[in-house]
Design a protein around this nucleic acid. Sequence first.
DNA 1: AACGCATTGTTATATTATAACATTATTATT
DNA 2: AATAATAATGTTATAATATAACAATGCGTT
Lengths: 133, 133
Amino acid sequence: MVQKQEYLSKNQKIVLDHVEKANQPLKAYSILYNVQKKGLKAPLQVYRALDKLVEIGKIHKIESRNAFVACKNSNCVVSNATAFSICESCEKVTEINNSKLSKYLSNFEDNSGMKYSKYNLEFFGLCKKCKNK
Amino acid sequence: MVQKQEYLSKNQKIVLDHVEKANQPLKAYSILYNVQKKGLKAPLQVYRALDKLVEIGKIHKIESRNAFVACKNSNCVVSNATAFSICESCEKVTEINNSKLSKYLSNFEDNSGMKYSKYNLEFFGLCKKCKNK
DNA sequence: AACGCATTGTTATATTATAACATTATTATT
DNA sequence: AATAATAATGTTATAATATAACAATGCGTT
């Protein structure tokens, strides 16, 4: 039996490295542009690396922005419970690390009989800086 | 002073009408294809109508799917607090109408000093039907 | 060595969304 | 009724985001 992948591949490392160095979400094509010097030439190479990194929780996708950000929560082993705050003015995105919130949402059940294995929450508003302008 | 728009325009009505008749989220280009017989010829006509309808809360965007669904909550006057359940197998999407959840999230504050005016939450899992397969 | 599977490389193309510009409609104020 | 402000429309072109399809390589297991 083939073991579950433990180490990142070359392209995955390159992409993760780049995304981790940014402290804001990056667009796929901006990543592509910036890793071209490292040999990744085509969108698919970036998207494939991103897919994997999202799958294993190293990177999260900010769905409302089509952008990708490195996971800041060491405990976010798998990308199944994510929450972000997004400033609608400066677009600053912060991953929310709030155990009460994650507990509340992980245990949430509605009357549909559906048990949720995953969620993504995006809050919008104005960050401190932008509010005081 | 010009008043806030009260009635929908021609294109907005056409698009909303079509989206309301579907009971699942629709893609923008699928909407376009289906309203062409009503005279809307270009993507922008659909996107502009959708933008407005989303803004006034008649339609919500399912961000993770790039799809649009009519609001089922009569109280969802403005599209500022949305929650959905999404089946990862059959892609059925349901708008969650749970006052406890919406109260909890509307009042949520973290330590960033940011006050949220809006949120979107998407739960993923298997619906009843798909779970029993 | 042979197999299975993840990854890579590459070209082409599909899908989603907006820019830019000209025109028309609606409604409030003068 | 004329004017002005705002919203909506129509149209062409193009930008931005993402995947299909196919061939080849790398690497651990049997």
